[in-house]
Design a protein around this nucleic acid. Structure first.
Length: 395
RNA sequence: GUGAGUAUAGCUCAGUUGGUUAGAGUACCGGAUUGUGAUUCCGGUUGUCGUGGGUUCAAGUCCCAUUACUCACCCCA
């Protein structure tokens, strides 16, 4: 929980800093919400069950359909565009492995109701900003950006008949050799010439090499925010299925030892496929599992047990003076704890140490008077006698 | 869905070709130190060897089954 609280806290503060408003949804939905979009195969990959009213339900495997459903329900009532975030607990029925668990959390940020590329810029800026907040640097991660529209127009130019067979190959391109890639392309109907051209195109790594006004604008906006070193053009970012329609992006650790830290993009017809009117949206998800692995690897997770400012100790072992003193500190909004048994003084210091206390206040020290206590800062061993406000300053 | 590995003290692990009462470090408890912790020294408790069955005079060790976990595939919303 210490790790999780830290991650959630940084996530939430970053989202609020960018002006996103928090929402939440039910942890299970009608199964239909997920099968409608992806077909029946998806059922094997999620937890589903029948409830007592014979309704087919599923534990949510992702948040976006819930968001889409909520947006459709509210319809025109919502002033657009709006920026929402959530930290849902999600479930997927699949074998656990490194970076993937059956139950996990995912930060979701979405902007609904604008076609402006500024929405993508806002989301990508938020990602870079929050990763910095975790203590990561440009040396640790990068955000690979691509465009479904750009890939689609390239495939159209090459007169590819079945682009939906080609996307998965583009996604896997870096996992195979150039020869294998071209061989695979030919197996889905591309000529040798076209396969070579496509491979050459996929090697583009700067926006100067490609013709995409929206990517150019996006990179300019990110540069204006000071995030230009966090992003790079990466045409191998394709992202799974036919869900996305515009810009797509994925965040990786620079060692590429791990799965993607986050991924997202623009979806222009999500609400439509669920029977609503067409509302454009763009969003991303960032899972807690890979992120926690990365932060642990970079030594960015505090080993501290807890963060207790004050531990109250007593020489006499008089429980009443412990409760009385603690109450005074708590009235002044200072969190504190103390032994619940009359134990030796040395033992109380051990307890303070174990509780991660910064300071021990001696409730009944010889030099203590009305409103003034002896205290000891545990990290330095330094001792003093002071009033409550001064002790607080010393922390 | 496919394949591999692991399971012994609270934690991290050792335990030889099967052989007496299953070990280490750490953590924990007590003491040295009854007004001073984290560092030092001394002493002490750790246990259904994942679970069930089998082989054997004898099983932590070998065999079968089972469960959980880990990892790699498939997939990745």
């Amino acid at each position: 929980m210490r790790v999780q609280n830290h991650i959630f806290s940084v996530w939430r503060q970053a989202a609020l800093k960018f002006g996103y408003e928090e929402y939440e949804g039910p942890i299970f939905e009608h199964l239909e919400l997920y099968t409608g979009k992806s077909g029946e195969e998806i059922v094997s990959q999620l937890y589903n069950f029948m409830d007592k009213g014979d309704r087919a339900l599923a534990l949510r495997p992702e948040m976006t359909p819930t968001l889409a459903r909520m947006v459709i329900q509210k319809g025109n009532e919502l002033r657009k565009p709006f920026k929402w975030f959530s930290i849902p607990r999600l479930f997927r029925y699949e074998r656990a492995q490194k970076g993937r668990l059956r139950e996990f959390f995912q930060l979701n940020l979405d902007i609904i109701g604008t076609e402006s590329i500024s929405a993508e810029a806002d989301l990508i800026s938020a990602i870079a900003s929050m990763l910095f907040d975790f203590g990561l640097t440009e040396k640790d991660f990068y955000i690979g950006v691509s465009s479904r529209r750009l890939l689609a127009s390239m495939l159209e130019k090459l007169e590819v008949k079945e682009p939906n067979l080609v996307y998965p190959l583009l996604d896997k391109r870096l996992k195979m050799s150039a020869e294998d890639f071209e061989k695979e392309l030919r197996s889905v109907g591309l000529s040798e010439d076209k396969a070579k051209k496509l491979n050459a195109f996929m090697c583009c790594s700067t926006i100067e090499e490609i013709d995409s006004p929206e990517l150019k604008e996006l990179f300019e906006l990110l540069k204006a925010g000071g995030f230009e070193n966090c992003v790079k053009l990466d045409l191998s970012v394709v992202r799974g299925l036919a869900y996305y329609t515009g810009i797509v992006f994925e965040v990786f650790d620079k060692n590429k030892n791990m799965r993607a830290i986050a991924g997202g993009g623009r979806y222009d017809n999500l609400t439509e496929t669920l029977g609503g009117q067409k509302i454009t949206g763009v969003g991303f998800g960032m899972g807690d599992v890979v992120l926690a692995d990365l932060l642990a690897e970079k030594n960015l997770l505090s080993q501290k047990k807890s963060n207790l400012p004050v531990f109250i100790a007593s020489f006499s072992g008089d429980m009443k003076i412990l409760f009385e003193t603690a109450a005074k500190f708590r009235k002044n909004e200072i969190a504190c704890s103390h032994s619940l048994n009359a134990v030796k003084f040395g033992k109380q210091l051990e307890m303070a140490n174990a509780a991660g206390a910064k300071c021990v206040v001696f409730a009944d020290g010889e030099k203590s008077k009305d409103g003034v206590w002896e205290y000891k800062i545990l990290s330095s061993g330094e001792q003093g006698v002071d009033c409550l406000e001064k002790i607080l300053e010393a922390l």
